[in-house]
Design a binder for these strands. Structure first.
Lengths: 206, 206, 206, 206
DNA sequence: CATGAATGAGTATTCATTCAT
DNA sequence: AATGAATGAATACTCATTCAT
């Protein structure tokens, strides 16, 4: 009687395993090195079986995109800053979260980068990925706007511009593969200095 | 007398045409959509002819990387800020150059992004592309350092951190496909505000 | 119950069919005329299917070499002269076997010749083929040695030298495409005359 | 005035150089590894230039065959046994010539073997090569017949059969890559023993 | 004579996908 | 659900040959 749910579970697990294998392959070889057969090998199943679960390669790519979204959302919700935190604390929280992910789960960001690029030529991917990108932007923008409103950030700060700077710093450290924590901290501090309202001391929020 | 140069020119032109076709194809479909036959078609030659000039696909990718480097260097040297300019003028010059390239020759930056990503899995590309990336960083860092030295930038500014913010802003506006000039100007102004020394008025250098 | 064997049989049959097609193609056109596509056509399968069973052309050549070895060994063991035969009877048995093969299955010797030649440039083939060649030599040498020992062959005969003469006669009749049985018989008789001990009558063993 | 002959000479030299390069390539890689471009490279000319001298690959193969014939004939005529020699001395002379060629110019026999095999599928080659083969047979047969006639060889010897044994011994030692001079000498002695008329001592002719 | 460039027809191999079981 | 076998359509690359100069 409990068989159907079990099977569904099994199918779902298979899909998860397939998505995971696809991801690690994308990290290793990029999209141009992604082969369905190799995914099947890593999962330990036959290619025909893989195609039973995921009909086409496009569907596979979409599956990976969706799995990225799920992980991203889960992580964002899990690491959501409490309502009781100040805007600058919440912003620092965002930075911490980003760099922690890069340290502990670098695969996630690498696949994300591949997906963002692929989104340029692949509408299916774009439909899944671009909203994540915008969600991220909006969330940070909201924090900045809150900081401007409560006076903890410079009152004349333009939230979208500041958001671009914030996200830009995250992307740039990633592009330059900067892992040294001190260098990262210094850059983040620098960014805070230019955002916080004048009389505030550096890292007063830390 | 001019025969040998002419012939050389001819071969060189073919290579240039091949690199150009490859680039536009990369822009349209990414590396995963790059097909030698399609490049040959676009150049208007037989595949065998393409292979006569460039023996393998790897060599083709390297050719594209090299052509990127040449264009990049040519552009950088051409648009080199005069020695008589102030650091803040030179920095603005860098921003202007970047955004003008994005407007007038978006292909260049898109291919550059693809190359940077490919560099992660392809050592040949990495050897050509990574030095460009570092060259760019260093050039901006030098401007920032000069600004700090002459007092036009905040004296306590950390040049590498500021450079990451500057490059980050360029990359972020690119990632979010922000084309609106006003939005860009506002973001650039915001960045300048956080870099210039306190009593200075905004856009004093414009 | 019989399913796994059946399946194995099927794959094995395919391989056998591929090897057979490759052999006849080698006979017709030599190694330089061997094309995977043509083999697939003769077997009645798609090239991709051929590559499913045999991954590369080198593997195909090795398969043919192995199939030669199997046939050779099977034939040698099947036509093994009884222990009760005299050395000269056993030697004549070898000759008969050789010429019968040439008449009834000329393909086998032609492919063998191609393989021996290929072995000079192809180590994989050499590893399979040269042992067969040596096996053949050794088997005949043993017969000659036995004949010398029991006095039926000239006592001062050098077995390796006689073996070279015996095999040489087989190869030479092949090289000169001599099919006329009388001519062959006369040559074989001549060889026997030079091997048998003096007082013996010709064909006393026939 | 002497230019035309000079040029003709030059063309002829080129052809010789091309044939030589083709031969060494055939030795190294067999017919299946023969590439016009590689021949041109070895000669130090352009492929177009090679095709100027030899229009097609078939013509090239024929050129090689012809060059083989020329060398073969030149060598045979040069090493022609004097009329004053006895049949057994002349036969030994043939053996010596063969084994000396194998030692000093092994390329010649290897290419010859390739050609003989190719003759099976290539009529042009067959027309050039088979007469050489037959010329060789006939020459040895004549020596044997002379030996039978003058009583130095066994009177009941069948010349064609003996010729097959003689040539067979040469081919067999070649097929088994036997280079050891002692082994060769022993085999040749053995063959002589079976041919010479009974009361004759071994190597009486040496 | 010589050559750089070009090309048509191949040539082995790959890959996503399908199908019978 | 799963799999071994099969396949059409590519895919990078090769090779003998041609042609303009």
């Amino acid at each position: 009687m409990t068989e159907p749910p079990q099977k569904y579970q099994a199918t779902d697990d298979r899909k998860r395993a397939i998505a995971a294998a696809a991801r690690s392959l994308i990290v290793e070889k990029g999209f141009e090195g992604l082969r369905t057969r190799e995914i099947a090998d890593r999962v330990g199943i036959n290619i025909a079986t893989l195609h039973y679960h995921i009909p086409t390669k496009d569907a596979l790519v979409e599956l990976v995109a969706q799995s990225m979204k799920e992980d991203f959302m889960a992580q964002r919700l899990q690491h959501q800053p409490g309502e009781d935190l100040s805007p600058s604390q919440r912003l620092r929280f965002e930075f911490d979260g980003h760099f922690r992910t890069r340290r502990e789960n670098p695969e996630l960001l690498l696949v994300m980068e591949e997906m963002s690029r692929r989104a340029r030529h692949d509408d299916t991917v774009a439909r899944v990925i671009l909203p994540m990108r915008d969600f991220w932007f909006e969330r940070i923008r909201a924090v900045v706007a809150a900081g401007c409103a409560d006076g903890s950030f410079r009152s004349d700060l333009d939230p979208p511009s500041a958001t671009l700077m914030i996200i830009g710093l995250m992307i740039a450290t990633s592009a330059y593969r900067i892992e040294d924590r001190e260098v990262i901290d210094r850059a983040v501090d620098e960014l805070f200095r230019s955002i916080l309202s004048a009389p505030q001391e550096r890292r007063a929020d830390a």
